[in-house]
Each structure stands twice: as structure tokens, then as C-alpha cells.
Simulated assay, not measured.
Amino acid sequence: MPALPLIVFDVNETLLDLQTMEPTFERLFGGKVDIRLWFANLVMYSLALTAARAYVPFTDIGAAVMEMLANTQGIKLESADIREFKDRFSTMPPYPEVPGALRKLRDAGFRLFTLTNNLVEVQTRQLEQGGIVGLFERCFSVDSVKVFKPSPQTYAYVEKELGVRPSQLCMIACHTWDTLGAVAAGWEAALIRRPGNDILGVGPQPQIVGNDLMDVADQLIARHKGRGLS
């Protein structure tokens, strides 16, 4: 009987609530820039740097994008503002259903991991602050390969480290670019419809789509019912 897939989670916005940063963003930008525009630009420029074969840590790109957006609006950010924003980013709480859903998956026999664009130390702080770090066997960072998701190298790195085939892995994320990359790499994938995120009607599609992590967990358990650990 085939084993359960190893589940690999994206972290930012998939597990942790990006919207909790909105009050800080509102204070700094006075409503002139939406936090989702900042995050979309952060992802876009991480991909642009990867395409240009240049690597900069994710939080540093995030700070640079903040300053760029502030400059477009004639807003001057102080160094203390950037430090506050980085601190808030590394202490975002998990969505309410996340701890219970992770435990449900683990109790069902699934092994849990993470793969994030963040540095290891940033995601470790995030997961520790959220009280969920102990639910994961290992946390992976794209910093080890110096390219950002959804580059194929990021998924291949996890495969090599865990010593498994692509078909033995499942990515859970709320970003279509992440599930697209995982499915293209031969992984199973599940997409969470977090606010502002949904499926893209072209390209490789996730096998599971859910409204929150508990919904996805229930679907995964049903999908792989009868499988056991080997």
C-alpha cells in the first residue's frame, strides 16, 4: 500500500494571517497603498531577482519594496518604521483553524514540513510565535538554493533532502504560483482560498481546493483514506 504523501506547507499567508499587519501598514501609508499591493510586489520582485540570477533575502526585498512604494507616494519612512514592519512580519499569528488542522493531519499519519521564501531564522520565529513550530518535522528555506519559489530548484531541494520522489510530496499553499510550481515539479498540491487568493484557470492545477486549512485537511484525509505509513 502506498504511503501517505509528505505534506510541505508554504508559511506566509498560508498559515499566518497577513491581514493582521494591516493596522501598521495603514499607519505608515495612511491608506495610500494597500498591503496586498506591497505583498504582490514583494513576490513579483523576488521572481524578477531570480530570473536575473540575483538573490536577496526575502525580508530585505520586502523592506526595499516598502521604501519604493513610499517614494511613489511622497512618504518618508524612518528606519524605525522598517524595523517595526519586519518585526510584525515575523510575528504574524496563525489563522484560527491552523493549529487544529495541523494536529488533525498529524494525527491522521501525515508528516508535516514547511518550505518558505523566508530565511530559516525568520520562519522559525514566526512558527515559534504562533505556537506551531513543534508540529513540523523540519523547516526548509529557499535560502539554501538561493532562488525563490516557484523555481524548480526549490522543490528539487526538498526532494533531495527528504530522499523521496516528487510523487511522494504534497504542497499546501494559498498562492497559485506556489501550487503551479509544485504540480509542474510532479507534486500533489492543495490550494487554500485565503482572502484575495484563488485558483488561476490556466497552467497546472491543484488537485484540492479548500476555503481554509481545515477544509483542505478533511479533503486530504478523505483522498488518501486507507493509505498507511511505510
Score class of each variant (00 low, 15 high):
residue 1 M to T: 15
residue 1 M to N: 14
residue 2 P to E: 03
residue 2 P to S: 07
residue 2 P to M: 05
residue 3 A to Q: 04
residue 4 L to S: 14
residue 5 P to Y: 05
residue 5 P to Q: 08
residue 8 V to E: 05
residue 10 D to F: 12
residue 11 V to E: 07
residue 12 N to E: 14
residue 13 E to K: 04
residue 13 E to P: 01
residue 14 T to E: 11
residue 16 L to M: 15
residue 18 L to H: 12
residue 18 L to R: 09
residue 21 M to E: 10
residue 23 P to F: 13
residue 23 P to I: 06
residue 28 L to Q: 06
residue 29 F to M: 06
residue 30 G to S: 09
residue 33 V to G: 00
residue 33 V to D: 01
residue 33 V to H: 03
residue 34 D to N: 15
residue 34 D to Y: 11
residue 35 I to R: 08
residue 38 W to Q: 01
residue 38 W to T: 00
residue 38 W to G: 01
residue 39 F to V: 02
residue 41 N to K: 15
residue 44 M to D: 04
residue 45 Y to S: 03
residue 47 L to S: 11
residue 48 A to Y: 11
residue 50 T to R: 03
residue 55 Y to S: 04
residue 55 Y to N: 05
residue 58 F to W: 05
residue 60 D to Q: 10
residue 63 A to I: 04
residue 64 A to T: 15
residue 66 M to V: 01
residue 67 E to N: 12
residue 69 L to R: 04
residue 73 Q to G: 02
residue 79 S to L: 08
residue 80 A to Q: 13
residue 81 D to L: 04
residue 82 I to P: 00
residue 86 K to A: 09
residue 89 F to P: 01
residue 89 F to T: 10
residue 90 S to W: 07
residue 97 E to P: 00
residue 102 L to A: 02
residue 103 R to M: 12
residue 103 R to F: 09
residue 104 K to N: 10
residue 106 R to L: 02
residue 107 D to M: 08
residue 107 D to C: 03
residue 108 A to Q: 02
residue 109 G to M: 13
residue 110 F to H: 10
residue 112 L to M: 07
residue 113 F to H: 10
residue 114 T to N: 15
residue 114 T to M: 13
residue 116 T to H: 08
residue 122 V to S: 09
residue 125 R to W: 09
residue 126 Q to Y: 12
residue 128 E to T: 08
residue 128 E to I: 05
residue 129 Q to T: 13
residue 129 Q to P: 07
residue 137 E to W: 08
residue 137 E to L: 11
residue 137 E to S: 11
residue 139 C to K: 14
residue 139 C to M: 14
residue 139 C to Q: 15
residue 139 C to D: 13
residue 141 S to F: 14
residue 143 D to S: 14
residue 148 F to G: 04
residue 150 P to F: 11
residue 151 S to D: 13
residue 151 S to Q: 09
residue 156 A to R: 14
residue 156 A to K: 15
residue 157 Y to P: 02
residue 157 Y to H: 13
residue 157 Y to I: 01
residue 162 L to C: 01
residue 163 G to H: 11
residue 165 R to A: 08
residue 166 P to D: 00
residue 172 I to Y: 06
residue 173 A to T: 00
residue 175 H to Y: 03
residue 176 T to C: 07
residue 177 W to C: 02
residue 178 D to P: 05
residue 179 T to L: 05
residue 179 T to V: 13
residue 179 T to P: 02
residue 180 L to P: 01
residue 181 G to C: 03
residue 181 G to T: 00
residue 189 A to T: 00
residue 189 A to Q: 01
residue 189 A to P: 00
residue 192 I to Y: 07
residue 193 R to M: 04
residue 195 P to M: 03
residue 195 P to N: 05
residue 197 N to K: 10
residue 199 I to A: 02
residue 201 G to E: 15
residue 202 V to H: 11
residue 203 G to T: 01
residue 204 P to W: 03
residue 205 Q to Y: 06
residue 207 Q to S: 07
residue 208 I to V: 14
residue 210 G to T: 11
residue 210 G to S: 11
residue 210 G to W: 02
residue 212 D to N: 14
residue 214 M to F: 12
residue 216 V to D: 02
residue 216 V to G: 03
residue 217 A to P: 05
residue 227 R to K: 09
residue 228 G to T: 15
residue 228 G to N: 15
residue 229 L to G: 09
